[in-house]
């Protein structure tokens, strides 16, 4: 028995690329989420963070190959049959997607979207489901729920739709919420509101959350722990405060310093030089070495493993250096 709700152990995800060729998107990712804990997964596009979250629900691209171990509440997710997997998706783990407009069926009403899973999965009566949906809409800050229930997705703004998506996730009362860039497609002003709603309701209900985002500030503000991903691997895991205070990995440091700050104006804004690589493009040794300001010849020789350094886990041979 472990105390963790979700355990990823050396997770590996490969997708087919032509004849008998495989592309690695996620490589050797180990991560845990405790009940009620919020863990952020941060990285650039193509770093494999989104695929890691999808792997938990086995929502991977067609033909993809998953390796390693995913254990949720001590059951191995990768060994579940179709029926158990459906039950897991229906009751235990729910996902919030990045683009609510694409991820909610445009030809069905909001009410349909909110009550469908309750009726089909939780055997609620249509009346109960409707009442609960209106209550949940109020919880996520939509007061005229009865009217909204009759409307269709094209009649709602992106911010409202994402609230609807959050309400639909809450309806299932899952133990873990996978939030895949839940605010990226929204206006900046709506972003913080939606994120606040999600975080507050999640805490009230004691749900754990795995937040996928490229915004390290957002992750730091909402999560207990943060994992930084680069080229399909985790390069650093620390508590949110410790990471923002003293990032160990040069890539984390780069991500933090390339955030624009409101307090002081810096010209030009520092950036991490070079282009992010995907796992299958990475060469031998540290995948970040070609972009790293402090890399040594040794960095390109052997891929550094994730190791404990002062309460943090870092995959860098120079992590002890200040």
């Amino acid at each position: 028995m472990s105390e963790d709700l979700l355990v990823l152990d050396r997770l590996r995800l490969e997708v087919p690329a032509g004849r008998r060729q495989w592309r690695t998107l996620v490589d050797d990712v180990s991560l845990t989420v405790a009940p009620g804990e919020a863990v952020g997964l941060v990285g650039e596009s193509g770093s494999g963070k989104s695929m890691t979250a999808r792997s938990v629900l086995r929502l991977t691209p067609p033909g993809a190959r998953l390796g390693g171990r995913i254990s949720f509440d001590d059951t191995s997710v990768l060994e579940l049959g179709t029926r158990e997997l459906r039950a897991l998706r229906a009751r235990r783990i729910a996902m919030i997607f990045q683009e609510p407009r694409a991820h909610i069926n445009p030809v069905r009403s909001i009410g349909d979207f909110l009550t469908e899973a309750q009726i089909t999965n939780l055997s609620a009566s249509p009346k109960q489901a409707h009442a609960k949906a209106v209550r949940l809409l109020a919880d996520v800050g939509i007061t005229d729920g009865e009217r909204r229930m009759r409307q269709h997705p094209h009649e709602l703004s992106g911010g409202l739709l994402q609230r609807v998506m959050i309400a639909s996730v809450l309806a299932a009362e899952p133990d873990l919420v996978l939030a895949d860039e839940p605010t990226t497609a929204l206006d900046v002003t709506t972003q913080s509101e939606v994120m606040a709603v999600l975080d507050e309701l999640r805490r009230d209900r004691g749900m754990a959350m795995l937040l996928i985002t490229h915004d390290i500030g957002l992750a730091a503000a909402t999560c207990d722990r943060i994992g930084v991903m680069y080229a399909g691997r985790i390069v650093e895991v620390q508590s949110a405060e410790a990471l923002t205070e003293s990032p160990r990995h040069p890539y984390s440091r780069g991500l933090l310093s390339s955030r624009p700050s409101l307090d002081r104006v810096v010209h030009p804004l520092p950036v991490v030089p070079g282009r992010a690589v995907a796992a299958f493009e990475a060469e031998e040794g540290c995948a970040f070495a070609p972009r790293c300001a402090v890399s040594t010849p040794e960095c390109s020789a052997v891929r550094p493993p994730l190791r404990a350094v002062d309460g943090a886990h870092v995959a860098c041979i120079r992590a002890e250096e200040p």
Binding site: R86, R108, E116, T120, N121
Partner: peptide, 20 residues
């Protein structure tokens, strides 16, 4: 994508085909 959402909610495949 919205079919992916339906799948992520654990709805049976036949239900997804009929409704979505």
């Amino acid at each position: 994508e919205h079919v992916e959402t339906a799948r992520s909610r654990g709805l049976p495949e036949s239900h997804i085909v009929r409704r979505h």
